[in-house]
Design a protein around this nucleic acid. Structure first.
Length: 603
RNA sequence: CGGGCAGUGGCGCAGGUUGGUAGCGCGCCUCGUUCGGGACGAGGAGGUCGUGGGUUCAAAUCCCGCCUGCCCGACCA
């Protein structure tokens, strides 16, 4: 063994050991030795994926023997899957440690009182799993840990201790209404959740930026092309909010992206430039006119009112109160924007009965002109200043025209409600916006003082003044990222993991297991690569070549070394790079160095 | 929760409308021949047809209830 290998080995050993808190993962050991031979491993690969697996990652992770479903939204990690999962987790750990993060482990089961302190015992609703212990005490399974970390922050008493970055990797439980797509959306998953503690907003900004950088490094190492986008803060509350999005058809979010400048935003947040509309000369007063049978924007358009000169009136019930949301006739209401604008918790469309009761007409003839002053009216900015508009008259078969919004409608608040559509002009550069489907791989946001205030987490500043700790919250779903990598790294043969998270970095495929020369060479190479710190597996199964090739390609091992009598008689083996499937003949005594260099460079 | 669909050996499916006690491919076990790209032959193991009830001489099949899972929408790492 060359000295170069020894050097590589110690580097990797140390790195692995530091990742695992002194617990070496990828070095030779009694436990690891068992995992050397494929013939002894439990890797149940499938020729056919279950029919109900649709997403590419779902299909391939099941076929490759990485995961199995226990029930809806709950997956078992098989040895191969857990290995990948932990490699992802270790990358996250390393980058969190690199920005000064300190790892904790909080319980997953929390007392009701902790969540009552922040008010989320109620507001989390059905999303939270709840149960009672034997004495009848209510407990919940944590969906996230703001409360718990904020409570821990009670023990930080001086400004001198700040800033702090605290994190953990812990199971989260969420009673998702609809688990789907394998690991992409589940009810039980490991999340790396981090929380920053700062004395003020400037400190928070700094902690936030540190995480932003760490996240980009994490996704880079995972081989994910993740773009930071402006996002809604959702149920967590807070101001600044950035999601890291990976483009994929299996995603669940729509991101507005400008091909020309760097504008990127979740549709829940995105804006676009809206061209002005010529309203012509408006009349002095609105005029009611009969519109028999007309119930839709399109029908009204045929009757002479262009959609962009109509007001669309959506009746919503926000925390029990009937509320109107107004957008231009050709625009779509975005529910998240309405929620963000109103601060509502429970938002739903009104039922037809509620609509008739409060507005006097059924959907299709609704408007905001002259409605009960009790009803709050939120109007989209695109309607601001508009005149000569057409809208429902709250009387079946009648509409108003010549409506001047400022004059005729008592708008409670002007807000951003409309959803951006593809093809609209970018708000910052005017280029044509596109909308791409994405997986939300990570989310960072500025919580402010909400949780620290609720838990009473204060410090004394340099002047001896009591200050509420300012917090940030930063999440990455480990399993989801594993799925996102799979979702973006595969071909018709199977997965093409990047070296950083591959279940094994290299596979030695012995072509003829009853050929002594083959097995001696394969075993020696295996020892040499292990010695060089390579995470390598020896496929010693007594199976046909096609089966072994297909399996190594399916599970996506980046490098394969094929050893058989045919090449061996000339001292040659084959090296195949999984991502490109390029195969080359290499001298047996040169292949270890070649593969080691390639893997080391790719880590 | 609203809309659509499906539960039959480990996986993929047929059978169902025309009730008669379950079949195919892959996988698994044994033997032989093969074997550098998912081999072939012979033999074999494996299923309360999701579940409860009903109709019937007889139910995988018809009827009702329930459970579970998947896909599309409202929520999130």
């Amino acid at each position: 063994m060359s000295t170069r290998f020894r050097a590589t080995r110690s580097t990797v050993t140390e790195r692995a050991a530091s990742r695992r808190g002194g617990f070496p993962l990828f070095v030779a050991g009694g436990q690891y030795a068992l995992a050397m031979r494929w013939s002894q491993l439990f890797v149940p690969t499938l020729r056919d994926a279950p029919a109900d697996a649709e997403a590419a990652s779902h299909r391939l992770l099941i076929r490759g023997g990485f995961i199995r479903q226990l029930h809806s939204g709950h997956y078992t990690m098989l040895p191969l899957g857990w290995k990948v999962h932990e490699k992802v987790a270790d990358i996250v750990r390393e980058e969190m440690n690199a920005i000064g993060g300190q790892e904790f482990l909080f319980p997953a089961m929390h007392p009701k009182s902790l969540w009552e302190a922040s008010g989320r015992w109620t507001t989390m609703g059905d999303e939270m799993f709840r149960l009672q212990d034997r004495s009848g005490t209510d407990v919940g399974l944590a969906m996230t840990h703001e409360e718990a970390f904020a409570q821990m922050a009670l023990e930080v008493n001086s400004w001198r201790a700040l800033p702090q970055i605290w994190y953990q990797l812990q199971w989260k439980f969420r009673d998702e209404p609809r688990p789907k797509a394998g690991l992409l959306r589940v009810r039980e998953f490991v999340m790396k959740d981090a929380y920053s503690l700062d004395i003020d907003d400037a400190g928070l900004d700094e902690s936030f930026d540190k995480h932003h950088g760490a996240y980009l490094r994490i996704f880079g190492r995972l081989g994910l092309d993740a773009m930071p986008v402006e996002a809604s803060s959702g149920a967590m509350g807070g101001s600044g909010s950035i999601e890291f999005m990976v483009e994929s058809p299996s995603g669940e979010d729509d991101v507005v992206r400008c091909p020309n400048c760097d504008y990127r935003a979740n549709v829940e947040r995105a804006a676009s430039a809206v061209a002005p509309i010529d309203d012509d000369t408006p009349p002095d007063a609105p005029e009611k006119f009969a519109t028999p049978g007309i119930r839709t924007i399109a029908a009204l358009e045929e009757a002479g009112a262009p959609a962009d000169r109509q007001i669309k009136t959506m009746v919503m019930v926000i925390d029990g109160a009937v509320t109107l949301a107004l957008v231009r006739g050709d625009h779509q209401l975005n529910m998240q924007k309405l929620q963000d604008a109103t601060g509502g918790v429970d938002i739903r469309p009104a039922t037809p009965d509620e609509t008739v009761k409060h507005l006097g007409a059924a959907p299709g003839s609704l408007g905001a002109v002259g409605v009960d002053a009790e009803i709050r009216i939120y109007a989209d900015h695109a309607l601001d200043g508009r005149t000569n508009m057409t809208t429902g008259a709250n009387e079946d078969d009648f509409h108003w025209r010549g409506v001047d919004i400022a004059r005729d409608i008592s708008v409670t608040e002007w807000v951003d409600l409309r959803e951006v559509s593809a093809g609209e002009p970018c708000i910052s550069c005017g280029s044509t916006l596109e909308i791409v489907r994405c997986i939300e791989a990570g989310h960072i946001f500025k919580l402010g003082t909400r949780y620290a205030e609720a838990m009473g987490a204060h410090v004394l500043d340099a002047e001896g003044q009591k200050r509420t700790i300012v917090m940030g919250s930063y999440g990455i779903g480990i399993g989801r990222n594993m799925a996102a990598v799979a979702e973006t790294h595969y071909d018709d043969k199977g997965l093409t993991w990047p070296v950083s998270v591959a279940p094994y970095e290299a596979c030695i495929t012995a072509m003829k297991v009853d050929d002594e020369a083959t097995m001696i060479a394969a075993t020696a190479l295996y020892d040499e690569l292990r010695g060089a710190g390579i995470d390598v597996i020896l496929d010693d199964r007594d199976a046909r070549a096609g089966v072994k090739f297909a399996d190594s390609e399916l599970i996506g091992i980046p490098h394969r070394i094929t050893i058989g009598p045919r090449g061996l008689k000339d001292g040659m083996v084959e090296h195949t790079v999984r991502s490109t499937m390029e195969t080359s003949d290499v001298a047996l005594d040169a292949v270890a160095a070649l593969v080691t260099d390639a893997i080391t460079a790719a880590r």
